[in-house]
Write a protein that binds this DNA or RNA. Structure first.
Lengths: 338, 338
DNA sequence: TTGTATGCGTTATCAA
DNA sequence: TTGATAACGCATACAA
C-alpha cells in the first residue's frame, strides 16, 4: 500500500501528539501529559498548549480508545425507528447515559434479525463499551452472538429461556388486561383486537392476554385481525375487520396501529368513542396527536429505557454481576377515544 | 501438545490474533492473513480457523481502525429525534450508506448548539469516517468546529455565508409559495401562518416566504403566530391565533405543527377543510395519520438525505473536491385537509 | 507461502 | 518534572 504516499500527504494529515511535541520542543510524553492536564511545569505547559493550538491539534479518539481499552460510547440498537415509542425509550436512555459522561449512538437495525446479529458481530467488537438492544424477537442467532459479544449487552424485550443476559421487559399481558378492563368499565362488550404480527413475541403476548382477560370476565373476543405494528397495518387490518364485524370497542397493539384503526373507523362514518371506543398501547406522542386523542396503555417505555441504561452502567462498573431480569408494570392513560 | 500452555495464556481477557496464532502454532501475520481471507495454505488456514473458533476470537475493531485509518462508520447528528421528518432523511441516508458497506450511527444532539459542537469535537475525532449534520441553525461555534473537524462533514440545512463545507438545503421559500398558492387555488383568502420559532433559519425563511407570496398576489397575511416546531407548540399557537382571528386557511411550519393546528381547529368546533383548510410541511408520516389527512408541502427530506449521503461518500473517495451546495426543490402533496 | 518487524496515535511505566 | 520506551491489537512491507 502507500506508506510513501502517506508520508507525502503528511503535511495535510492531522497533527498528532508527535507534531505538537516536536513543535514545542518537548517529548511526546510531556506533550501528552500537558494535553491531559496532568503535570508539566507552567512554562513547558504553555509551550505545548501554544503548539497544539497553532497546529489545530485534535486527539485521535481511536488511538486513545485502543490504549484505554474503552471508548466512552454506548450503542443503542433499535428495531423500528419510525415507531415513536423508541423516542421515549431513547430519551430516557440518553439522559441516564449522559450522566455517566458517555455518549449514546443509535443504530437502526430495521427489524431484520440478520442486521441485528451483524450489528452484534460488528459494532460490539469494541466500538462501543456496551450495547442496549431493543428487539422484536430474539432468535437463535441472536443468542449465539450474545453469548460471545465482546461487550456487555442489555436486551430490552422478551427473551426465550433464561439467557445469562441483563434483560428489561414490558408486561404485555397485564397491559392488555388494563386496556380490556377499562373498556369493560365503559360498558363495552363487543371488543375486538387489532394486533400486529402474531408471530412476534409482543404480538402473541397481546393476543394471549386479550383472550385471557375476556375469558376471566366470561366474554369472548368480538373479533381479531392482524397486520403489522405500523399505521398502515392497523388501518388495513381494521378495514378488514369492519367488513365482517361491528365491535363497540377496539384494542390496538400499539399507538400506531390504534391511529390506523381510528382512521378506518372514522372513514367508515362511525363516531369515536360513541360508536367505537379505541385503546392504543405505548402511550406515545401519537396518542396526543390524533383527534380524538387516544386512551393508551403505557407499557413503561421510558422506565424500561432508564432501567436498561442503569443495568448497563452498573455492569460496566462490575462485570461480575449476575444477569438481572426486570419487568416494568403498565399503567392506563385515559384520553378522549374511550 | 502444548495445549495447556496456550489455554493458560488464553484465559486472561478477550482473545486476540496473538492468542489465535499461538494456539494454531503460526505467526500472528499468518493468523491475521487467514482471518482476513487473504493467502494461507489450506492446511494452515484450517488450523487458524479452528483455533479462532475454539477461543471465540472476535477482531478488535478499534485496533483495526487505528491501523486502517478508517472505521467504516458514518455519523448522523440529528437535532430533533421526535420529528418524523428525520425518519425520512435517516432512511434515505441509511440506504445510501449501506450500499457503500459502511454503517450509520445516529446521534441525537437535542437542538442545543453546545451539544452539537461537543459532538463535532468529540465524535468527529475519528470515531467516524464522516459526519452528516442536520442542524436548525449554524452558529459561530459550529463554524469554528467545522473548519477544524478531523473528518469530512456534510451539513443539511441553511448555513450562513459561504463556508467551504458540503451543504444540502431545502427551499423553504418555494415550499411556502407552493402551499400558499394551493390555498389560493382553493379560494381561500384569509390565510394565517402558524410558524415555529422565527429566530431559527427555517422559521424566518417560512415567514419571509409567506409574506412575499401573499404580497405577490396582492394579499396580506390574515395573521401570524409563532411557537416552536412541535405538536404542542402548534396547538397552543393556533389556540392563541383563533382567539383573535378567524382565518379560512392555516399554513403550518411543519407537519407536527400542522397536527397541532388541526387539533386546535377541530377542538374549536370548526370543520376541516370546510371552515379552515390546513397545510403542513415536510410530508411526513404524520400527514397520513391525522384525520382528515394533511395536505403537505414535501420539502424533499428523502432527497436531501440521499444527496447528503452521496456528497459525503464522494468526498470520502476524493477529499480534494471543492465544497458543493445542493438545493432540493419542494413539491405539493394534496390530501384531505384542503 | 510464511515469519519478522514496524507503525497506526495514544497513554502508562519506568529511569534519569 | 521530564524523557525514552513499551504496550494496546491489528495489518502489512519486506525478507526468508
Amino acid at each position: 500500500m502507500g506508506r510513501k504516499r502517506f508520508a507525502v500527504e503528511a503535511d495535510r494529515g492531522q497533527p498528532t501528539v508527535r507534531t505538537v511535541a516536536q513543535l514545542a520542543g518537548v517529548s511526546i510524553a510531556s506533550a501528552s501529559r500537558v494535553l491531559n492536564g496532568i503535570g508539566g511545569s507552567a512554562e513547558l505547559a504553555a509551550r505545548v498548549r501554544a503548539a497544539a493550538e497553532h497546529v489545530g491539534y485534535v486527539p485521535n479518539a481511536i488511538a486513545r480508545s485502543l490504549q484505554a481499552q474503552r471508548t466512552g460510547l454506548i450503542g443503542l440498537a433499535v428495531v423500528d425507528i419510525s415507531n415513536p415509542v423508541y423516542v421515549l425509550m431513547t430519551r430516557a436512555i440518553e439522559a441516564e447515559i449522559a450522566g455517566s459522561g458517555r455518549q449514546l449512538l443509535i443504530h437502526a437495525t430495521g427489524a431484520h434479525a440478520a442486521s441485528e446479529t451483524a450489528l452484534l458481530r460488528g459494532l460490539a467488537r469494541r466500538y462501543v463499551d456496551g450495547l442496549i438492544m431493543s428487539v422484536l424477537e430474539v432468535t437463535d442467532s441472536h443468542v449465539q452472538e450474545l453469548s460471545r459479544a465482546a461487550v456487555p449487552v442489555v436486551v430490552v424485550g422478551q427473551m426465550p429461556g433464561e439467557l445469562p443476559v441483563d434483560n428489561v421487559r414490558a408486561d404485555s399481558l397485564s397491559g392488555v388486561a388494563l386496556g380490556v378492563e377499562h373498556l369493560l368499565d365503559r360498558g363495552r362488550t363487543r371488543i375486538a383486537l387489532v394486533n400486529g404480527s402474531a408471530s412476534t413475541i409482543p404480538g402473541s403476548d397481546r393476543e394471549a392476554g386479550f383472550h385471557m382477560t375476556l375469558g376471566t370476565h366470561g366474554l369472548r373476543a368480538a373479533d381479531v385481525e392482524r397486520g403489522d405494528f405500523t399505521f398502515e397495518g392497523g388501518r388495513e387490518a381494521t378495514r378488514r375487520l369492519l367488513e365482517r364485524t361491528r365491535p363497540d370497542a377496539i384494542l390496538a397493539a400499539n399507538d400506531l396501529v390504534a391511529a390506523g384503526a381510528l382512521h378506518a373507523v372514522l372513514s367508515a362514518g362511525l363516531r369515536v368513542p360513541e360508536d367505537v371506543a379505541v385503546v392504543g398501547m405505548d402511550n406515545t406522542a401519537i396518542a396526543e396527536l390524533t383527534f380524538p386523542r387516544l386512551t393508551s396503555v403505557d407499557l413503561g417505555a421510558t422506565e424500561r429505557g432508564r432501567l436498561a441504561a442503569r443495568l448497563l452502567l452498573s455492569r460496566l462498573d462490575d462485570g461480575g454481576l449476575p444477569a438481572r431480569y426486570e419487568r416494568v408494570a403498565p399503567a392506563l392513560v385515559v384520553r378522549d377515544s374511550t
